[in-house]
Nucleic acid binder design. Structure first.
Lengths: 249, 249
DNA sequence: ATCCGTTGGCGTACACCGTACGGTACAGGC
DNA sequence: GCCTGTACCGTACGGTGTACGCCAACGGAT
């Protein structure tokens, strides 16, 4: 039983106050904020222990006095930005019926992923279960409370919507990163790739893919449009949920 | 204009035959296969250039004679395992109506992600557009051809289903990795975490989250069940697509 | 006022990573 | 038999997370 994956230690850290300063004024909050700023500006990979420490002006290893390791720092970063979601009285359940509420939940999560694209890289695996994550879960579930769904269905519907948002947000973040790394906009890349692809595909036959691919790429000037995928998928999912409410299985 | 992100070079590599051996019999195919074996066994992080070379029995830098860099090797790995999907006459469009076909597509992609969890880490960003990826796109689109959807809707519906599968598969892979790294099964982890979470949450009030969270965690003996999320979400999405077909917008 | 145990801060070191660079030795054309 | 192109590879560089051990400053007891 190693101390490596002790859930209690990580949870206590997450639910702590993070305000007690050390000798040089070093605080958990300051460490987390610096790491978030770095990740916002240059991606999660840029939030290395060395660069976080440099940004604050302390030695690298001083961070380990306040944070057990990189993993726990990531957890703290995640729960901190989740705190941006529903602050105070901004209750998703007060936005009309379940459909408007669910749409609001999806849009707020989408916005959050646009502000902090690294969130998608930092999550995955066991959930974080920090205070803001639990608050988020509560606020989002309230949207679906009392409309005729079982508790399990409420959880499943919420998970479905959040999975959809996470998927399209990941797609968006991936394209944005590719654009930054390559220096080519999506349109430029597609203009450069399409002719090469067409030439290399000569001899093979893809009737449907050719027709559909050309149609959608002409509309988006690219190979995919995450914003459209977000809206289209959300509409379809909400229609499916409507059916679930109308005709419970 | 650097050669770093030249789409033509990467495409030519993907559509090549990969069979011409060098002096010591070193082949692109052998390199890719070794990398896939490593990634299957220990995750994408284990497929380092050094370990791939060691596995084949050549020097690390010899790989760079056949592959421009790690990025291109990843692309080759991805397109290679995508080739496992619809081999030969196994056509998703021959599985009944669009609903059964779409379900078949979802299940085959789900299976593939279970066999090669690293796929989810290797994709993202611009699509790979190798021969097997294009073949997959064609085969999957045929399921939706001629049922009253526009070309754009066909592409959007397919994207929606694949995004859903990718999302729940990523969730599954994350939990599996957490289980391997921590040595705790999902049930064990939840049994260890739940009481701590309950104690740390005393003083706060989460009525709906408490009720729903307890209900679902009692069913799954965990905090989430990707297999259930896969099935539930797919049903809801298919219902929503049904509505789209019935009442085009 | 002095001493001492505790603790915050940090410098160094280790084992990894991708890959740029330059050297070596072999295969095939003449 | 010689020459040349290239397959192969050893070394090195700058990066990563963090284990370990040292130092200095603080708080409390005497």
């Amino acid at each position: 039983m190693s101390a490596k994956s002790d859930p209690g230690r990580s949870l206590a850290l997450l639910w702590g106050s993070h305000t007690r300063p050390g000798r040089s004024g070093l605080t958990i909050r300051a460490i987390v904020d610096a790491a978030i700023e770095l990740a916002d500006a240059e991606g999660l990979d840029a939030a290395t222990m060395r660069r976080v420490a440099d940004k604050i002006g302390v030695g690298t290893m001083s961070l380990y006095t306040h944070v057990p390791g990189k993993t726990e720092l990531n957890d703290l970063m995640v729960d901190t930005v989740i705190g941006e979601l529903y602050t105070g009285v901004d209750d998703p359940a007060g936005h009309g019926g379940w459909r408007e509420g669910l749409r609001y939940v999806a849009e707020r999560n989408w916005d959050l992923s646009l502000r902090h694209p690294w969130l998608l890289d930092a999550t995955g695996g066991r959930p974080t279960l920090g205070p803001h994550a639990v608050l988020k879960y509560e606020a989002e579930l309230r949207v679906l409370d009392g409309i005729g769904l079982t508790d399990l269905q409420m959880d499943s519907v919420l998970t479905l919507v959040l999975t959809h948002v996470e998927g399209v947000a990941r797609s968006h973040a991936g394209l944005a990163r590719a654009q930054r790394d390559s220096g080519l906009t999506e349109t430029e890349w597609w203009r450069a790739t399409a002719p090469v692809l067409e030439r290399v595909m000569t001899g093979h036959d893809f009737p449907v893919a050719g027709r559909v691919g050309e149609a959608s790429s002409q509309v988006y000037q690219a190979s995919a449009d995450p914003a459209h995928a977000f809206a289209f998928g959300l509409d379809v999912i909400l229609d499916g949920v409507q059916r679930l409410i109308d005709a419970p299985r």
